[in-house]
């Protein structure tokens, strides 16, 4: 059987719709009958990644690949890239501007949360070119 694939374009200018796609995926996973645990992990990790895409990278696109064994989310942006991934993985570390912090983001929990709620987190990034984030949540 084929995997279920979803594709979304993420608008980098519009903060009011950031997170909309994670909501759609969450709804879809519920309909498909995935366990509440899997749904929570995907919802939180993907939401963090989607918001990051808008805050730091001016949008991009998301591909979701669902099979009964696992959910994979790939987020590709054409942003500035992450200079120091190790640092970015630390809780509390953030490069977010003051304006973004005033909105309640930039607490430095983005990547740590993605790590915490996924079974696999792969990041390939190139300065000035963009970042590809791959989130995998396995069905136990």
């Amino acid at each position: 059987m084929d995997n279920l694939k979803l594709h979304y374009d993420v608008n980098g200018d519009d903060f009011s719709v950031a997170g909309e796609n994670s909501s759609k995926v969450k709804k879809m996973l519920k309909q498909l009958g995935f366990s509440p645990d899997v749904i929570r992990c995907v919802a939180i990790a993907m939401y963090e990644a989607e918001i990051n895409m808008v805050i730091h990278a001016n949008g991009g696109f998301i591909d979701v690949d669902i099979s009964p064994e696992r959910v994979k989310v790939e987020l590709q942006d054409k942003g500035p890239g992450i200079p120091d991934i190790e640092k970015a993985m630390q809780e509390g570390y953030s490069t977010a501007s003051n304006r973004v912090r005033e909105l309640g983001f930039g607490a430095g929990m983005g990547l740590p949360n993605m790590k915490k709620y996924t079974d696999e987190l792969n990041i390939s990034t190139e300065i000035g070119k963009g970042t590809l984030v791959e989130l995998i949540v396995n069905v136990k």
């Binding site: 059987m1 519920k30 498909l32 009958g33 669902i66 099979s67 009964p68």
Partner: peptide
């Protein structure tokens, strides 16, 4: 839920 079986639901 669309189906009790995930593959069928997909």
């Amino acid at each position: 839920n669309l189906d009790s079986d995930i593959s069928k639901a997909m």
